[in-house]
Design a binder for these strands. Structure first.
Lengths: 71, 71
DNA sequence: ACATAATGTCTAATTTATAAGACATTTTTA
DNA sequence: TAAAAATGTCTTATAAATTAGACATTATGT
């Protein structure tokens, strides 16, 4: 799996660091780092928490061909 | 967390049993059963696999207020 | 250039998802 | 109504996510 640039972008838009986001969703900084790097298979609950903090949906951050579909 | 009736519904629409779906995505039947029952926190990759088999998106099966939003 | 923050990455320990097997109960079908 | 299939649920074992700590590297700000 490749990098998840969508999380990185959404995080930048909220002016949050990896640690900020990790704290906000209650995981370690390494976990957020690994998720963005792409070699992780996070739980759906963690993905949902990330989405809520960043103001995005699952499709927007974790679905493949999202870019066109959902708002 | 409550039951995931959306998976159950989508599965019924494809006329698949829990075991059929479990086999299709490569997990044990108990895992699918627990996911539908709702006391599981499956990985995002497993969720995506389930979505693909059932012809749905992440938002449709695992996001909360999806019912209105996405097709 | 220096200081500081942010990120990348490694190791070892722990928690949790998932597997495998078995059996009970409910639903479907003949 | 009986048999078979599907589902619910429990126990034990294993694989994988996640944590905590530490240190190197890269970016940011003064």
């Amino acid at each position: 799996m490749g990098k998840n640039l969508r999380i990185k972008t959404a995080r930048a838009a909220k002016d949050m660091t990896q640690k900020d986001l990790a704290d906000a969703v209650g995981v370690a900084r390494q976990t957020m780092n690994a998720i963005e790097k792409g070699d992780y298979n996070p739980s759906i609950n963690l993905c949902i928490a990330i989405c809520k903090v960043l103001g995005k949906t699952l499709n927007q951050l974790f679905w493949e061909d999202d870019e066109y579909e959902n708002q």
